[in-house]
Each structure stands twice: as C-alpha cells, then as structure tokens.
Amino acid sequence: MPGPKVYIGWWGAMGGPKQKGITQYSISPYRQRALKGMLSGYIVHGIRRIGAQAPYFVPPFAVGYFVYTWAKAKDHYNNSKAGHLAAMQAGEHGDH
C-alpha cells in the first residue's frame, strides 16, 4: 500500500548512516552510583544552564511584571478616596 514518506525505520534499519565499530563499555552494577553528583552537579550546572537562557526570558517577564504591578497600583488608586476625588474633578464619574 502506498504511504507517506516515513522518517524513521525500525531497529537495524533506522534510516541513519551505517554504524560500524560500536564498542560498549560498562562497569559492574555493584560499582555504579546512578545518582552520583546529581544534586551537587545541578547546583552548578543547572543554574549555569538556566542563567544562559536568562537574556531570552528575563526581559519579557520583567515587562509583564511591571505592567502587572503598575495596573494594580493604578486600579487601587482609582478605587481610593483620592482617586474618586480626582476623577470627579476631571468630570469622569458623573455625579456619584
């Protein structure tokens, strides 16, 4: 049956270049420490990796946070005594 182009094969015919000379090394499972250095490594490298992304996500979040705090303060003022007075003087609120 004709089908679409498929981008992946099955084991042994995956579609990549032919692999040769594969060597596997392993140490005894009794000597392995699966989580060795995971936490201490993350403190250094995790922070470094996230830090490297900071130029991309910090500016948008900073602008978003600024808009959020500004609008909240503005809304708070609009609903305060001073805000009502100012609005009334500007003739915005009609007669209440």
Binding site: P4, V6, Y7, I8, G9, W11, G15, G16, P17, Q19
Partner: peptide
C-alpha cells in the same frame, strides 16, 4: 509514524 522530535530539531535516526 515518524517518531518524536528532539531538542536539537535534527533527525535522531543515528541515535535511538
């Protein structure tokens, strides 16, 4: 049909 993509965005057929 085509399998998952990956963070590099290139074919991973050499490394599954």
């Amino acid at each position: 049909t085509h399998g998952s993509s990956n963070p590099l965005g290139i074919s991973s057929n050499v490394d599954k």
